[in-house]
């Protein structure tokens, strides 16, 4: 089915028309350069995303710490990764950059803390 996409590679923002053919190939038109065609082909075959979420903190001044993936992962892994994120908790103190889950679900991406949470004062 033909669909219009706005390419995000450069400010030209070309409007691409892309069509997934029966044999799995993608036909692209409207791209101003080869990078656009490559981008939409990747998008349609194996889109990758990063997400941000929160992890429960034990013994911290705050209840949660913000986290994100250190690199993009296939879109289809997002919900399974969210399940992993919901399962874990981390004990304060937490610092920015701390790895909360290393190589989550063998995706190659870590779940890293993006803010700090100090331990609750006694």
């Amino acid at each position: 089915m033909k669909k219009i996409y706005t390419c995000i590679i450069c400010p030209r923002s070309c409007e691409l028309e892309a069509d997934i053919l029966p044999d799995g190939q993608v036909s692209v038109s409207g791209n101003g350069c080869p990078r656009g065609a490559e981008w939409i082909r990747n998008e349609l075959s194996d889109p990758k995303r990063t997400i941000a979420s929160s992890v429960l903190v034990e013994g911290g001044e705050k209840e949660i710490v913000s986290v994100r993936l250190s690199s993009p992962v296939p879109l289809r892994m997002i919900f399974p990764i969210m399940d992993e994120i919901r399962k874990v908790s981390v004990t304060a103190p937490v610092s920015i950059g701390d790895i909360i889950i290393r190589d989550v679900l063998s995706s190659g991406a870590d779940v890293i803390a993006t803010s700090s949470v100090l331990a609750k004062k006694e």
Binding site: T50, A52, S66, R68, I96, T114, S115, S116
Partner: peptide, 10 residues
């Protein structure tokens, strides 16, 4: 680099 809001603020 592409980072989150809290990291930018930090």
């Amino acid at each position: 680099k592409s980072i989150s809001g809290p990291e930018y603020a930090a």
